[in-house]
Design a protein around this nucleic acid. Sequence first.
DNA 1: AAAATACGTCAGCCTTATTGACATATTTAA
DNA 2: TTAAATATGTCAATAAGGCTGACGTATTTT
Lengths: 166, 166
Amino acid sequence: MTDSEIVKTSMSEDDCENFRTIELLFFAYRSFITDADEVLADYGFGRAHHRVLHFVNRRPGLSVAELLEILKITKQSLSRVLRDLMDSGHIAQERGAIDGRRRLLYPTKEGRALALRLSQLQSRRINAAFERQDNEGRRNVEEFLRLMIDPEDRDFVDQLGPRGDI
Amino acid sequence: MTDSEIVKTSMSEDDCENFRTIELLFFAYRSFITDADEVLADYGFGRAHHRVLHFVNRRPGLSVAELLEILKITKQSLSRVLRDLMDSGHIAQERGAIDGRRRLLYPTKEGRALALRLSQLQSRRINAAFERQDNEGRRNVEEFLRLMIDPEDRDFVDQLGPRGDI
DNA sequence: AAAATACGTCAGCCTTATTGACATATTTAA
DNA sequence: TTAAATATGTCAATAAGGCTGACGTATTTT
């Protein structure tokens, strides 16, 4: 590192396109998640708990392996979070009927209530952001976000929406 | 937690609007950041380094306090990351000319090059996601993202774009 | 019966964040 | 000109949430 030259000019859209979008994504996502953070803190939970709670509520009866696949974390990481949520009575396990090795995850009533509360907070922000947009605008936003996702994950997100009982 | 009732129905858009958008945001943002993660790993850097590098390149000469304000982290957190980036020759400090207490942060040539490389990766994904959208569609996306941001941060993002030399 | 699968857990490590306390240089105010 | 405020750096301890590797156990498949 022999004394490298200092640069004093700003990096701008001339150097690379889409700086504004890059920054909008950073700040938008940060605001988006802090909504839930505050509520989660009351339960001693973090974002990891939120993600698990969310997908268990969206796909009741999913297995641990499926959840790992969605979240792309290791089972060791998941297990701590899952234990917290089971200890607090937000999530419950059942052995699989067809395959007894699988532990199927379900929300409890309390887990459903918390998941809804968190989603409603985030939904409010989304509604406010969509306020001045028509259906076409919303479609544009959803298409953009969808195409930002790695192709491998896109199908999963799609089947999460309409139905597709696991 | 006296054995709470298990819920087996899926949480759906009937329960709360915008589930699809919530999930699109989660997956889109995850894909978005992993582009850069892979390059950063080669340098032994993480996302924290990326954020610092980015804003120092966008606002060369900003002070430590300003950077803390943008990132909303503590100086203790920042200092380690900043030290790594200075040790590796990606960022350099200069004492403020008017106020000698301030340490103004600048990218080096190497720091600028790395910041650009990372931005270009992310920009490519953004271009692909915008591919089938016209100017109106892009405006919709940017307006949506902008309104998702907490009002306090919106102005900062705006003045980051056009100019506004610090 | 043996092998593969699904899961749980123990132990140790890393990154990135936190808080609190304290040192230092520099500027500003009394 | 001394005192106070400011900007920064740093030390120490802690926490969340990731990771790898190894090993145990139930259950299903071969």
